[in-house]
Design a binder for these strands. Structure first.
Lengths: 243, 243
DNA sequence: TTGATTCATTCAATTGATTGAATAACTTGG
DNA sequence: CCAAGTTATTCAATCAATTGAATGAATCAA
């Protein structure tokens, strides 16, 4: 109810969800409340009564609009994906579709990677509900539903491929080399950990949440590590590779 | 039941859990089954009937031995912590307790870090139930219960402090510097991502689970990034730090 | 016998979903 | 412009199913 207002600015165009295109109220309020409750608890832990109460609508509206609890959950995931898509995906797509013959230099790759991370952290701060997003996505990693298919194919996959391409170009390798894909995973872990290990970070840093200042500090730390990874082999004469 | 056998080799000395010290059967079977079911589902999603069935004991035994579902959950967490403690903590403790005046060289630090990650990955492969551990721990990060206090204080904290110390020594900084702590978080993310993002890794690599061979490849990839991070500033003349 | 453990059964509470009536919004025909 | 009809939406009440827990008898071990 109160929380809903600061979320409206997302303006999710949920018209694609069912084809209907004119219910701005109950339907959207349920998605908003669902995001919050599913994020705080989880698919099983959240109750439809709790969500309906939070949304200020009758419990039966969940079945009416979404067919049931699971339908609402999927609608929430689609809403999340559409927002992430708009905010962090364009950069990733332009990178992974770059002509393979025309590789990035290590420093170009580094700056593009840092730019993607900046966009990622910015989105994290700009949307108050981002913490709910990450909780839902991380739980899907532990216990995938069909919602994960949607997230993976529409977001995760592209981001990973972009980072693999950047890292491969920077280290003179190929982005489909399994070892390079694994290094890209490791690289992505450097900033995903601030979502996946949020409670650990919170305790170690004595933070309450991620504001712009915290995001700035995270960005600086990740950038330092990233610079080392992207430029190490260039700056090192006898580039000591794996094993 | 069938699954329980391949877990017995853990030999968790759960005598410290309640003081009783002579029920090897029903009690331990419940912890084993609880680990599996709580890992596959979660605290709310797992049902006591399911756990009792899996353990091959009567449902009432859960209340009898652990006071209830939550008590069993805590016992499972304590069991997990005790195993991790025995396998990856000694190295971390010796590092964080090293005399601050007697710092590690960058290469020493690198090798110690790589050693810890090797121990970590080895534990992951050696214990078939490790995938259940990680699921439980990761969910606790998203939705901390009092179980997280126990995990954090007994395991996570020490591991993070050890890595912060190593990274600080390697880059000539202080391990309590917030920026260094953040870089250590980022660094830890490089291998935790293989737990936190397990479904993503699984799809990208077309892996079923983590066997010794997969762990070896992960180790090689993480080591490559780690070497860059630990030795970059040493090998780079004008060490271009953040911004 | 005595205490510890296991068992089938039952309980109250909560769950997601459904129902059918009530109400709002909109359309149509005059 | 209106009135009747039609659809879309909201609502309180209820349902069957499942939940964690409790019960008291039965079983076992010492």
């Amino acid at each position: 109810m109160t929380k809903a207002s600061d979320w409206d600015l997302m303006a999710v165009p949920d018209s694609f969800l069912t084809g209907k295109g004119s219910e701005p109220d109950a339907r959207q309020r349920l998605i908003t409340a669902g995001l919050e409750i599913f994020g705080a608890y989880n698919l099983e832990g959240a109750t439809t009564r709790q969500i309906a109460l939070q949304a200020g609508v009758n419990q039966a509206a969940i079945a009416y609009y979404f067919g049931g609890k699971e339908g609402l959950y999927m609608a929430v995931i689609e809403s999340v994906v559409s927002t992430i898509k708009a905010n962090v995906l364009p950069a990733a797509l332009s990178i992974k579709e770059r002509d393979p013959a025309n590789g990035f230099t290590p420093r170009e790759a580094l700056e593009l990677a840092q730019g993607m991370i900046r966009a990622f952290l910015g989105t994290l701060v700009r949307f108050p509900m981002a913490s709910s997003w990450s909780r839902i996505v991380m739980r899907e990693q532990m216990q995938p539903t069909k919602g994960f298919d949607y997230i993976y194919e529409n977001v995760i996959q592209h981001i990973h491929q972009a980072f693999a391409r950047l890292l491969a170009d920077a280290t003179g390798s190929h982005s489909e080399d399994p070892q390079m894909i694994l290094r890209a995973h490791s690289l992505v872990g450097q900033f995903i950990i601030f979502l996946a290990g949020r409670e650990t970070v919170r305790r170690r840093m004595h933070w309450q949440c991620y504001t712009a200042e915290e995001a700035r500090q995270i960005e600086a730390a990740v950038n330092a590590n990233l610079e080392a990874i992207f430029l190490y082999e260039t700056n090192t004469p006898g580039k000591g590779n794996d094993q």
